[in-house]
């Protein structure tokens, strides 16, 4: 096969080689990244690996080759439990519960009203 790539030339490939179909695949690990000490560890993606040790070794270069990293966690995808997407409605009314919200407590108006009344 003609090629301009010296690496490929060294392989002396045939263009016609048939490829066997692959049906097996490694399992996936979900990868979590901590940028700095004190920061949350956040999900960044997945790697294919055969065990947790390999998953970590792979995760370092897939997700840690730029910027800062203090640690990476890996968890087998099948070990992660999640809500089903229909259950999202369970969270729907939470933002309405304003009594949990600091902005809900507005004392300034009342204080001013009180002070104005006292002045009179």
């Amino acid at each position: 096969m003609e090629t301009l790539d010296p690496r490929i030339k060294r392989l002396s490939l045939e263009t016609s080689t048939e490829v066997e179909k692959t049906n097996s695949h490694l399992i996936t690990y979900e990868v979590f990244h901590q940028e700095k000490r004190g920061k949350h560890v956040t999900h960044v993606g997945i790697v294919h690996a055969s065990n947790p040790e390999m998953a970590l070794v792979m995760a370092k270069e897939v997700f840690g080759r730029r910027g800062k990293t203090t640690n990476l966690w890996v968890v087998k995808t099948s070990d992660v439990y999640t809500f089903s997407s229909e259950d999202e409605e369970m969270f729907e009314t939470t933002p309405e519960k304003t009594f949990r919200d600091p902005a809900y407590y507005k004392v300034r108006d009342r204080i001013e009203k009180f002070q104005n009344k006292n002045k009179v």
Partner: peptide
């Protein structure tokens, strides 16, 4: 790379699609 991937395969583990 086929022999590498075959050797890394762990037959006791079952593949599930990644979450996100």
């Amino acid at each position: 790379g086929r022999w590498v991937r075959a050797a890394l395969m762990n037959p006791t583990e079952k593949y599930v699609a990644p979450l996100a």
